[in-house]
Design a protein around this nucleic acid. Structure first.
Length: 199
DNA sequence: GGGCCGATTAGG
DNA sequence: CTAATCGGCCCG
């Protein structure tokens, strides 16, 4: 697969961890705003207590009824919309949470929506990037591969440069190194710390 | 209907 | 450190 090309359905028909890692460097565009994905997390539909499918019948139903690449969007803490891709059809199904973007286009609009001036504060968190791109519950279940206004394209990041760490903010299954990010990137959600490793 | 929880964030 | 705020889920 080649940089700049649109992501195909097959991209999401692989394991959640592979998809999460390879989404780093890809570009996510929606309605005039775009950013390079610099931080993700993988969640597994089976055997992962941190995944919604562990406790929510509705999440299990979502996996069954939607095609790979679909948007799984939900409201967290009653305040923040979080955006995931459904991953399905590989050895295991699951989700990839998009946690941070490096803003590329529509930066002025993002600044207005976020009421923030610094580019590194626009999309450096899962709830912040949805606010910047104006992604919310109406996008739950849509297919960004084909939906009007959306575009997903491949990056050129060397996979060997991507770091991994524990996932952030969860209380279950903290030990899995399923957070992926670009090291020393000022657009990731947190200063790199804690136990990090190359996959 | 009530109670609890949570893949977060901004502000003090 | 904490408040903010609500869908999903379970219980009764």
């Amino acid at each position: 697969m080649e940089s700049g090309r649109k992501l195909e359905r097959a991209f999401f028909q692989r394991n959640p961890t592979i998809c999460a890692k390879e989404l780093i460097g890809c570009t996510l565009s929606f309605a005039g705003c775009a950013g390079m994905i610099v931080e993700t997390e993988a969640y597994a539909a089976l055997g992962d207590p941190a995944c919604h499918t562990w406790r929510r019948p509705s999440a299990r139903e979502f996996v069954l009824k939607h095609q790979p690449g679909s948007a799984y969007v939900y409201l967290n803490y009653g305040l923040h919309w979080l955006f995931n891709f459904l991953v399905k059809g590989g050895e295991s199904d699951g989700f990839v949470l998009i946690r941070a973007l490096k803003p590329l286009h529509g930066i002025e609009i993002m600044k207005q929506r976020r009421n923030r001036l610094k580019a590194e504060e626009l999309c450096n968190g899962p709830g912040k990037l949805t606010q910047s791109l104006e992604i919310n519950g109406v996008h739950h279940g849509i297919d960004p591969i084909s939906a009007k206004g959306w575009n997903l394209s491949l990056g050129k990041t060397d996979l060997a440069t991507i770091h991994a760490s524990s996932r952030i903010g969860i209380t279950q299954a903290r030990e899995y190194p399923w957070r992926f990010f670009l090291p020393r990137c000022k657009f990731v959600s947190l200063p790199s710390r804690g136990a990090e490793s190359h996959p």
